[in-house]
Design a protein around this nucleic acid. Structure first.
Length: 340
DNA sequence: TAGGGACCTGCC
DNA sequence: GCAGGTCCCT
């Protein structure tokens, strides 16, 4: 079963490209026709974005990341530019065409459309005015809410000491161990496998797929969780408080403070979590802890940074974190391109 | 408690 | 040499 829905939301409130490539999810890709195709939990989505301009209803292909980085690098794109753009958007809507085997509600849940982005941004700016330029250049970036806790749990076990293209490749391969839920344009779409299945994958098989040492760590972590109750155990950590979930996750082998925060935020939806990785550390030292610039991140600094940011943004910490993290990633990608 | 090296692989 | 870290050892 599949349906196509039309969804109208205020202009600029959802930038699919930013969301899909912001490191929260790894199973989304831009197709040759400019649409985005993604898998999340039990569902796949194909999304086309069009902005209604007057009577015309022209579909525009998704832009490229250089578009976003270009905005990001523009020094004149300060708060005033942001306000100006917001004003020009007034009364306009973006029209999304969403084809899916799920429902529009599933899509809305994933992109957290039940959270009013205007209100969220206003509150973030009120609590942290220093984030104004980040919000301005990353308009339409949202905190996502993936459906499957298990899928996100293993996804982030692929990320340590790794780079984005390879993370995508590893996640895709793990997903291939899951059941086929549908076939779209001749391609099999897999549901991410459950904990027991991941635990049973022979490390040698993952080695062949260039998982490196993760070929051992991922099934081992899966076995540990299986002892605790498997998928239901991970899922149950959504029902407890953030601190309790974090403590439980850190007990899992190969999950440290940072992965525990990632999983708390993206798998368990504990929105006061803030993963402090290398990118966020750079942003945080720049904005809040200049005395640490140029030094390495330690456990003590990690705790100091995360409690400071959590104290500043509360339940909006995870959303606010997304701007700091992704801005630094984009700038990093840009610097890398420029070196060529 | 802080600091440093190893870890798979791939790409610079 | 190093990347969306963790573990283990001084």
């Amino acid at each position: 079963m599949r349906e196509t829905h039309r969804l109208e939301i205020p202009a600029g409130r959802l930038d699919l490209e930013l969301c899909a490539s912001s490191g929260q999810v790894f199973r989304w890709q831009c197709e040759v026709d400019g649409s985005w195709f993604g898998v999340d939990g039990d569902h796949w989505y194909r999304v086309r974005l069009g902005r209604e301009v007057g009577a015309a209803d022209a579909w525009r292909p998704a832009s490229t990341l250089t578009h976003a980085t270009g905005l990001n690098r523009d020094p004149s794109r300060n708060a005033l530019a942001y306000v100006a753009e917001a004003r020009s958007d007034y009364g306009r809507v973006d029209t999304l065409e969403v084809e899916t085997n799920g429902t529009l509600e599933d899509f809305s849940r994933l992109f957290r459309l039940d959270w009013d982005a205007d209100a969220v941004e206003a509150e973030i700016l009120r609590r942290g005015p220093e984030l104004e330029p980040y919000l301005g250049s990353l308009r339409g970036l949202r905190l996502l809410r993936p459906q499957s806790a298990t899928e996100m749990f293993f996804t982030f076990l692929c990320t340590p000491n790794n780079n984005l293209p390879r993370i995508v490749q590893l996640v895709r391969h793990l997903a291939s161990f899951g059941a086929v839920i549908d076939e779209v344009d001749g391609r099999a779409v897999h549901r991410f496998p459950d904990v027991a299945t991941v635990a049973s994958i022979p490390p040698t098989e993952l080695r062949q797929r260039s998982f490196g040492y993760r070929a051992d760590t991922i099934p081992k972590a899966a076995k540990f969780v299986l002892e605790k109750g498997g998928d239901a155990y991970i899922q149950s950590l959504r029902e407890v408080g953030f601190e309790e979930a974090h403590e439980a996750l850190i007990e899992v082998p190969y999950i440290g403070r940072k992965l525990a925060d990632c999983i708390s935020l993206f798998a368990l939806h504990h929105t006061s979590s803030v993963p402090v990785d290398t990118h966020l550390y750079k942003a945080a030292t720049r904005l809040y802890f200049p005395q640490w610039e140029g030094t390495n991140l330690t456990d003590t600094k990690y705790r100091a940074i995360s409690s400071f940011i959590r104290g500043r943004f509360g339940e909006l910490t995870g959303w606010a974190h997304q701007y700091l993290f992704f801005d630094n990633v984009l700038n990093w990608r840009t610097r890398k391109e420029e070196r060529r």
